[in-house]
């Protein structure tokens, strides 16, 4: 027992100060892209489109990156001869609507909190059921991380629960494989109303790196209403936490 105490003391206090203190993603982290339309050479160049593995870049209405499709590989930024795309380490990426994820020169709209009525129910206690619908275990792993002492999700009143019956909503990862469609819908039905749906990761939003594979539904948008989109492949735990806290009005 004494050994456990000594080890505990040596490990120290590890919970991060976020959101009270600023988050510190790694220096080379590829977060919110900075898009410079003036530098872009447009359709004549299109080097970014040629290298993007998920068709996330478009030039139709000026240079625009769809963060829902983007896997943040950085290939477009490397390929751009004009340096019109730069990935910043900004981890704030979530959006309430699918079209809000289109990242052009204008800054993306900030995540609006849930309605007052919803916040009255969920604002101080939100239980989420996670469903992996064919994810690669990276999004799942970084959701699990939120439960560790570093992020300590419980301090915000948010908890991942084992049964949909105990849940207020779903946290969905993976492109929704055809083989998981029924199980996902049944789980959704098992969650009592009112409920929310959070799509975590490029797969759940658009199919992610598997966009050319045929055995899935390209994410959850076609079959369920989504309240929060959290982009990334996988999203950094800070990105996920930030999105959920904004939805609950705890970060403004």
């Amino acid at each position: 027992m004494i050994k456990a105490f000594i080890t505990r003391l040596r490990q120290g206090y590890k919970t991060i100060g976020f959101p009270r203190t600023a988050a510190a993603p790694p220096e080379r982290f590829r977060g919110l892209p900075n898009v410079n339309n003036h530098a872009c050479a447009g359709g004549d160049c299109a080097a970014c489109i040629a290298v993007c593995p998920t068709k996330a870049v478009s030039l139709d209405k000026g240079l625009c990156i769809d963060l829902g499709a983007c896997i943040f590989c950085g290939a477009c930024a490397k390929a751009c001869p004009q340096g019109a795309i730069r990935f910043t380490p900004n981890h704030v990426l979530s959006a309430r609507a699918r079209h809000d994820l289109l990242c052009g020169e204008n800054s993306m709209p900030a995540v609006k909190a849930l309605s007052k009525d919803m916040l009255r129910i969920f604002g101080r206690s939100l239980k989420l059921r996670q469903v992996s619908a064919g994810g690669c275990n990276a999004c799942e792993a970084d959701i699990n991380v939120l439960g560790t002492i570093v992020y300590d999700l419980g301090r915000f009143g948010v908890q991942i629960v084992a049964s949909p019956r105990h849940a207020d909503g779903l946290l969905i990862t993976g492109p929704v494989t055809k083989n998981m469609q029924v199980a996902l819908l049944k789980t959704y039905e098992a969650v009592p109303d009112p409920k929310i749906v959070v799509a975590v990761g490029a797969c759940a939003i658009n199919g992610g790196p598997f966009v050319n594979c045929t055995q899935h539904l390209h994410g959850v948008t076609e079959i369920l209403p989504v309240d929060l989109f959290i982009p990334g492949c996988p999203p950094h735990p800070l990105t996920i936490l930030d999105g959920i806290l904004r939805l609950l009005g705890k970060i403004k």
């Binding site: 998920t54 896997i71 690669c136 790196p209 598997f210 050319n212 045929t214 055995q215």
Partner: peptide, 30 residues
Amino acid sequence: LGYAHRGVEAALKGGPDRTTLPIMETAAGD
């Protein structure tokens, strides 16, 4: 098993191309 079947091997046919490496990286993301 089979619930996570995305069709990875079929999508690799005709490669390698720009999509191949990301698929490999996420065949098992851990």
